[in-house]
């Protein structure tokens, strides 16, 4: 596998200590190449959310190693200092619900990230508009989130996740509230964007409709990941 994208080796996460310690992640290994979309599936309580939070630099793992692009971001207790900047610049998030900022219009919802990184407003909006055009929602650039359909909101959310060109996108149940047609449209967009922007995409899902679309799937069970080949149906 490529050295770009995201690589996780021997990742562990323990909550608490002593007899009451909970080992949420026991041995997680993943390697997702740029431009690749992989599925992460598992039953409730298997450690999916904990893994997502570790990948998203929201909580610290207990042990293991994570590499993002060329940069080691966690290595057995050592971690990069500025996790906030890491999340802003190097990780894109797409949530189950779009969670757009209701008081910002579409273009500023997307442009907010580069603005937070210090990019001038006009330039940030240009970047945002470019992505909105790629996702075919540029005509709603000045609309408020409440004026968009569910599918449009999700596309805007994907644009927000991509706007800083992160090496990895973490998508948490991105198709859960959508019907089959829209769910497939979202997965198609994620695949297109992954290829176009050379981004590794990890999709956490329970959605039976979209599981056959992944070429590789990571199953997580009792805190341990197992890789298997997927069907990769529909996205060559």
């Amino acid at each position: 596998m490529s050295s770009k994208g995201i690589r996780i080796e021997g990742l562990k996460k323990r909550y608490g200590g002593g007899d009451t310690a909970v080992h949420a992640l026991k041995d997680v290994a993943m390697d997702v190449a740029p431009g690749e979309v992989v599925g992460l599936i598992g039953p409730s309580g298997s450690g999916k959310s904990t893994l997502l939070k570790c990948l998203g630099a929201v909580i610290d793992p207990t042990a293991g190693r994570m590499t993002l692009g060329d940069e080691v971001i966690y290595d057995d207790g050592w971690k990069v200092r500025d996790l906030r900047a890491l999340r802003r610049d190097r990780i894109g998030f797409v949530f189950q619900a779009p969670y757009l900022i209701p008081f910002l219009d579409v273009i500023d919802n997307v442009a907010l990230l580069p603005m937070l990184a210090g990019v001038p407003n006009a330039e940030a909006r240009e970047q945002a508009l470019e992505l909105l055009t790629a996702l075919d929602v540029h005509h709603r650039a000045r609309a408020m989130p409440s004026q968009l359909s569910g599918g449009e909101q999700q596309r805007v959310a994907i644009a927000r996740g991509l706007v800083n060109r992160p090496p990895v996108i973490l998508a948490d149940e991105p198709t859960a509230p959508l019907d089959s047609e829209r769910a497939m449209a979202v997965i198609r967009i994620l695949n297109d964007m992954a290829r176009k922007f050379e981004t590794a995409v990890i999709v956490v899902t329970h959605d039976e409709k979209i599981i056959p679309t992944f070429k590789r799937i990571y199953h997580i069970r009792d805190g341990v990941t197992h890789e298997e080949a997927g069907e990769g149906r529909g996205f060559d």
């Binding site: 998203g56 929201v58 906030r84 890491l86 999340r87 998030f93 969670y99 900022i101 990230l113 937070l116």
Partner: peptide
Amino acid sequence: IREIAVLKLIGTRNRT
């Protein structure tokens, strides 16, 4: 709350 959580997740500074 949810918007603030999203803002913090995507890297907004506490002071902002």
